[in-house]
Design a protein around this nucleic acid. Structure first.
Lengths: 218, 218
DNA sequence: AACAAAATTTAGACAAGACTAAAAATATTT
DNA sequence: AAATATTTTTAGTCTTGTCTAAATTTTGTT
């Protein structure tokens, strides 16, 4: 049996591991999980005992196959619940995270598969992140950061990097919604801000914003 | 903030309190929650500190207004989730309990009201139990135990007393479903078994069964 | 009313998960 | 390569929720 706390650690380690190539540091986990490094050391030992992670003192942590599988399953649940909340219960994309953090820990062999079917097997959550399938396979995507797109190219907005409520509300305010078409009109070299055409309006966005929008060129 | 454990205690106390008229005993709570009396004493003190229950040493426990309100809200969540599982996710009525026990603890101001609306404001759960409304009001019903029904009366099956998986499967096997019409054909005085007509078939049921079926006379 | 039985509470212990402060190992700088 | 800074681990403590065993109160019986 896996505890709620253990699940949260695995999820954090998974996200850190896929960001960075190498073994995840104690400090990085502590920051992500908003705890202290000493607490992480304790928990990581427990996870290693249960064969969820590989751990050598002072050398960082990596997920085992079992650990990765478990983490992906939690992420699958999280994202499916997000789709449910938005599609069926009128939540907006900036409201779903905290509730999904709770729902992702519900344990039922049947529940998630039925939910998946009920939602008609969605492939992406409301923020554009891919939903792992039953076997833990995650579809790769050729999305890039908008900040990397060339001037005068057309692209489609397919996901966010930062899914904080504040950022999502900023996007709503400017009518930037998943699926929108964007034309890159130009970039300023001094502050790396960018001018884009979206929904027939020109808009100037900061580097921070363009770095947190994923697009596909079309 | 209320913990998961505290919520489970409140729910247990609520169910025991509405069964019996008087204050709930430590032992009764321990049995319901499958723990030990000493653990109950500890927890009950904490609940009293937080003004969820009234408690005097050796004198049993009763819910305060705040405690009852909290308990009813948990029961509302439990029953709404049960409806969701049965109506939308193809769970059968004997499969929902364990999952609903987990889902009832999800905290979100918005989630339950939206779920309620999504389910079109159901009044009863899949076992025939009433769903408290937003304000904690529970519809009273004139249901009686089938064992109390007179010979030769007609009635409608509206709820179960025992909602254990085994009992529910027994009912499924004999095609006894919520809403069925039942005619009481006779009772044996020596073992209090009962012969009924249901779905055009006669069936002999034990006292245990007739005691766990709620009906309304029609 | 006194005694036995049952129920309840207290005292002390334990596991999980977190923390602080101090020690140890690794990284970085000069 | 030594000195310093940073990171990580250890040691010891705390809280929550549970337990067992012993003590206490209440209840039931003669």
């Amino acid at each position: 049996m896996i505890t709620l706390s253990e699940e949260n650690y695995l999820k954090a380690i998974y996200h850190l591991e896929t960001g960075e190539g190498r073994a995840v540091s104690t400090n990085a986990i502590a920051e992500k999980i908003e705890s202290k490094a000493s607490s992480v050391t304790d928990m990581v030992k427990k996870l290693a005992d249960k064969d969820f992670v590989n751990y050598k003192k002072y050398q960082g942590v990596s997920l085992t196959k079992k650990g990765r599988h478990t983490a992906i399953n939690i992420i699958r649940k999280h994202r499916l619940w997000e789709v449910f909340l938005v599609d069926k219960l009128n939540f907006s994309w900036d409201e779903v995270h905290d509730v999904a953090e709770q729902l992702e820990h519900i344990k039922s062999p049947k529940l998630i598969d039925e939910l998946d079917a009920f939602l008609e097997f969605p492939t992406h959550d409301p923020h554009g992140d891919p939903i792992p399938d039953k076997n833990g396979v995650i579809s790769k995507s050729d999305k890039i950061k908008l900040s990397k797109a060339e001037t005068n190219t057309y692209c489609k907005f397919v996901g966010v990097n930062d899914s904080s409520s504040d950022f999502l509300k900023y996007l709503d305010k400017h009518h930037i919604a998943l699926g929108c078409e964007i034309k890159v009109l130009g970039k300023e070299s001094f502050d790396e801000s960018m001018t884009i055409l979206i929904e027939d309006k020109t808009l100037n966005i900061s580097k921070t914003v363009s770095n947190n929008l994923f697009v596909k060129t079309i």
